[in-house]
C-alpha cells in the first residue's frame, strides 16, 4: 500500500474512465458507461485513495485479474447511503393517499429497484403492516450488489443510525412505536424478520437487465441521479414496462421526469413527493 496524503490530487481524464468502464463491461458484464460522470469520477477517486492505487490504469489491471477485488469495487462505487423512512413526508403521503388505493386491490406487487441495504423495504413493510396490508403484498427488492442484498435480507443496521431512523419514523404519522419492530444486539439493530420474510431479494442491474414482472408500485428513489440522460431514458422505459396501467412510480425528492422521452405516458400524482402514475401503454 502506498502512503498517500488525504488531499493529494489525482487527475482522471474522461478517456481513463471510458477505458475502465469498457474493461468492466467486457470482463464482468456490468455497464457503467452511462453513469453521470461527475459523481462517478468522485467514486473512482475515492476507490483509488482507499486502496492506495495510483492510476486508473493500475485499477483496471487489478479489476481484470482479481475478481474478488471486483466485488469490493462494486460495493465501493455503488452508493449505499440510505435511511429508514428517508423523506418522512413521502411516507406520510403514501400512508394517506396511496395505501387507500392499494387497499382496493385483493393483492398487489411492489418493486424496490436498486434497494441498496434495504432501509426503504423495511420502511414500506412497517407501513403496510400498520395499515393491515402486509399479507397482500408481493415484494421484490433488487440491486446490482450481492453484498448489500445479503445485508438487506438480514435487516440489520448499525446502532448509530437508530436516532435518525426514530426521528424519521415519528414524522410519518406512525401507528406504533419503532421499538416494536427491532431488537438491539451487539451494537446493531435487528429488525423483525417478519418484515422481510415475504420479500424476494434478487440481483438486477437497471443498466443492462430487462423487466421481469408487473408491479402496482415501483420505488426508484435517488437511483437515476447517478445515470446520464441516455441511461435514464432506458430505465424509464424499463420501469414503464414493469408497471400495470394505473401503477405508481416514486422517484427521489429532487429527481424529475421532465427530460424523459416517455414522460407523456405518466401523469404527476404528487409533484413534491415525486409520485407518478402510468396512464398510457
Amino acid at each position: 500500500m502506498f502512503n498517500l496524503p488525504s488531499e493529494y490530487d489525482i487527475e482522471i481524464e474522461l478517456d481513463d474512465l471510458n477505458k475502465l468502464t469498457d474493461a468492466v463491461l467486457t470482463k464482468y458484464g456490468y455497464d457503467f458507461g452511462n453513469y453521470a460522470m461527475s459523481s462517478f469520477k468522485r467514486r473512482i477517486i475515492m476507490v483509488l485513495k482507499k486502496h492506495g492505487i495510483k492510476t486508473v490504469e493500475l485499477l483496471i489491471q487489478k479489476i481484470l485479474h482479481d475478481s474478488q477485488f471486483f466485488e469490493q469495487f462494486i460495493l465501493d462505487i455503488t452508493v449505499n447511503t440510505t435511511e429508514l423512512f428517508r423523506d418522512p413526508s413521502f411516507f406520510r403521503y403514501l400512508r394517506e393517499k396511496i395505501i387507500p388505493v392499494l387497499n382496493t386491490r385483493p393483492e398487489f406487487n411492489i418493486w424496490h429497484a436498486a434497494c441498496s441495504s434495504g432501509e426503504e423495504v423495511i420502511s414500506m413493510s412497517i407501513l403496510l403492516h400498520e395499515e393491515g396490508l402486509l399479507s397482500r403484498a408481493k415484494v421484490y427488492a433488487t440491486d446490482i450488489n450481492h453484498a448489500v442484498l445479503k445485508r438487506a435480507a438480514e435487516a440489520r443496521y448499525p446502532l448509530r443510525n437508530l436516532e435518525l431512523f426514530k426521528q424519521n419514523y415519528e414524522l410519518t404519522m406512525p401507528k406504533g412505536k419503532l421499538e416494536d419492530y427491532y431488537i438491539v444486539k451487539d451494537n446493531e439493530i435487528y429488525f423483525d424478520p417478519a418484515l422481510v420474510s415475504h420479500v424476494k431479494f434478487k440481483h438486477h442491474d437497471l443498466a443492462v437487465d430487462h423487466h421481469f414482472f408487473k408491479f402496482d408500485f415501483i420505488f426508484c428513489r435517488n437511483v437515476l441521479i447517478y445515470f446520464n440522460q441516455d441511461l435514464q431514458n432506458r430505465v424509464f422505459e424499463l420501469l414503464h414496462n414493469s408497471l400495470f396501467l394505473g401503477g405508481f412510480l416514486a422517484l427521489g425528492a429532487k429527481e424529475s421526469m421532465v427530460w424523459c422521452r416517455i414522460s407523456d405516458k405518466f401523469e404527476v400524482v404528487n409533484e413534491i413527493e415525486k409520485v407518478y402514475k402510468k396512464i398510457k401503454l
Binding site: A36, S38, R42, V79, T81, T82, I225, G252, E255
Partner: peptide, 18 residues
C-alpha cells in the same frame, strides 16, 4: 441532503453520496 454537482457546462447532477 443532496450534493449538487456540475455535470457539464450546461447541466447539474445530484448525489446522495457520503
Amino acid at each position: 441532503n443532496y450534493h449538487l454537482l456540475i455535470e457539464t457546462p450546461h447541466f447539474f447532477a445530484l448525489a446522495t453520496t457520503e
